[in-house]
Amino acid sequence: MALMPKRVKYRKSQRGKMRGNATRTNYVAFGEFGLQSLETKWVTGRQIEAGRVAASHFLERVGRVYIRIFPHKSITKKPLETRMGKGKAEVEQWVACVRPGTVMFEIGGVAENVAKRALARVAHKMPVKCRFVSRRHTIG
């Protein structure tokens, strides 16, 4: 089942713009390795679910997969061969707004080579170019 919110204030939302780079969710926080987006795009709930399934299927219940994005935004679409107007269409899908730098998935509890292969499979399911990142120790 694709991800979607349980409760929302308004059913339909405006499309908005996605400017700039990720200023949050832009580092590996929970696992040891992550999949970072290099592009700006909407990632649908179905794509996130497909990524999760691909990772958990590859890992065979070893390690842990963290999903760092959630589709909060509803996208509407008019049916085919419909005339324009008559108000905003019905919700078709839910998407997460992903900017360059967003860490979308994380994996912990497995070796680096395993995590790399698992996240490569996830990257195939994503609509954006991705790169593999590992946790960076802080200096301070």
């Binding site: 089942m1 694709a2 979607m4 919110p5 349980k6 409760r7 929302v8 204030k9 308004y10 059913r11 999760r52 399934v53 958990s56 219940r61 070893v62 390690g63 842990r64 997969v65 919700v91 509890g109």
Partner: peptide
């Protein structure tokens, strides 16, 4: 490893339950 929270979702998908729309507060 704990049983993942997504496991019930997989089961639901297999049963063919359609996703419901979210509750609208307003």
């Amino acid at each position: 490893p704990a049983v993942t929270a997504a496991a019930p979702a997989e089961e639901a998908a297999e049963e063919g339950e359609e996703p419901t729309s979210p509750e609208v507060i307003t």
